[in-house]
Simulated assay, not measured.
Amino acid sequence: MLKLSHVVVFAALGVLSVSHAYQYSEIQTLKQERSQATQTLTSNEIVSIVDQRLDVAEQRRAQDKFQTLIADYELASPRVPEDRLVYGSLNARLTMQEFSDIECPFCRKMHGGLKSVVDNSQGVVNWEFKHFPLSGHNPAAAMQAKAVECVRESYGNRVAWAALDQFFEKTRSNGQGVGDLPTFARSMGLSGKAMKLCLQSDAHQDRISQDYREGSQMGITGTPALRILDHKTGRDYLIKGYKTPEQLTQALQQILGT
């Protein structure tokens, strides 16, 4: 008599050897694999196999979500001059330069609002991301800033924005990070090996340090902070702290009206 525990084993394992299906009938193959499963696998091994299958399924769902997210950032050009991180039309009149820290909770809260401002600006506003990792959030903040640049280098500006979105969504904030960065890259369907090699190199350190110095010279000491550049008049405006999309839209309209 087939025991209930065996039924659970067979349901969890499925077909263990696809190649046998080409040599025997389906029933014969299932009988053989059923016997092998009950005779050779321990309960720990069964749990391990099930966990592996669940991990694969979860990774596929994450990869599918990431591909959809890339499409959501269609306003980001695949490549941008000077390797800048820019979302929106490169010919926009206004640029919101955001000095941001991925580990900053208020940056995380404002991230989606900045995107909505650009999405609704009809090409008048774009958004440039500047790295400003705070010392209290390091090393996670600095390493994740570098990871975003690694993605941009390998996959381009648009994919980097989608990755940045995922960093903000998944981080535990305040220096806790997203965990192992190569593993996080693989969860998005990106190369974990390329991420590891990039992080181990000196690549992008100058870019991140330059962004930080630039913000410091403007008097920025915390995040988020925005410098609004008006490319028509040559003026710039500094806005510090968290702002809602409505507050940002109002500020931008005032600049356009001057």
Score class of each variant (00 low, 15 high):
G215R: 00
S43A: 15
D101C: 06
E153I: 09
R60S: 11
A147C: 06
A203F: 05
V9H: 08
L13V: 12
D55K: 15
I255A: 07
D119L: 07
A71R: 09
G123A: 08
T29H: 09
E169G: 02
S5E: 15
S154A: 14
S19N: 11
C198Q: 03
L90C: 03
E246Y: 09
S77M: 08
E58Y: 09
Y237K: 01
T29W: 08
S25N: 11
G123V: 08
K240S: 14
E45F: 10
S173C: 11
D206F: 12
E45H: 10
M96Y: 03
A160I: 03
E98C: 03
S209T: 15
F99N: 00
L114G: 04
G179N: 08
E246L: 12
L69S: 10
E149V: 05
L190E: 01
E58M: 12
Q32L: 15
M96F: 04
T40G: 02
A76Y: 03
A12F: 09
G192V: 04
G14A: 04
R60M: 11
Q28A: 14
Y87K: 03
E149C: 09
H231W: 02
I255Y: 05
D236P: 02
E246H: 11
V7F: 14
L190S: 05
E153W: 11
Y155W: 08
T29G: 13
I46H: 04
L238M: 10
Q23I: 12
L226K: 02
I46G: 03
K232V: 11
H20Y: 14
S48N: 12
I70Q: 00
V148L: 11
V56H: 12
K115Y: 08
Q52M: 13
K170L: 10
G192L: 03
D236Y: 11
V159L: 00
S201E: 07
L94K: 01
T95F: 02
G14F: 08
R172M: 11
D165Q: 07
Y24G: 09
G257Q: 15
Y24K: 13
F132S: 01
T42H: 05
R158H: 06
R108L: 08
G136E: 05
T244Q: 07
L85F: 09
E74K: 14
C198E: 00
Y155G: 01
I255L: 11
L229Q: 10
V124P: 04
L226A: 01
G175F: 06
D236L: 02
A92Q: 07
R61G: 02
A185F: 13
Q63I: 15
R213D: 14
P105Q: 07
R93K: 04
Y212R: 12
P245S: 08
H20R: 15
H6A: 15
A21Q: 13
D211C: 05
Q250T: 14
R227P: 00
R53W: 06
D165L: 01
F10S: 09
A12M: 12
L238C: 06
L13W: 07
V15Q: 12
E214I: 05
L69T: 11
L2E: 13
R53C: 06
F99V: 00
M110L: 10
V117G: 00
A162P: 00
M1S: 14
F132L: 06
A62F: 06
G136P: 04
V50A: 15
D72G: 02
T223A: 05
W161C: 00
D51K: 14
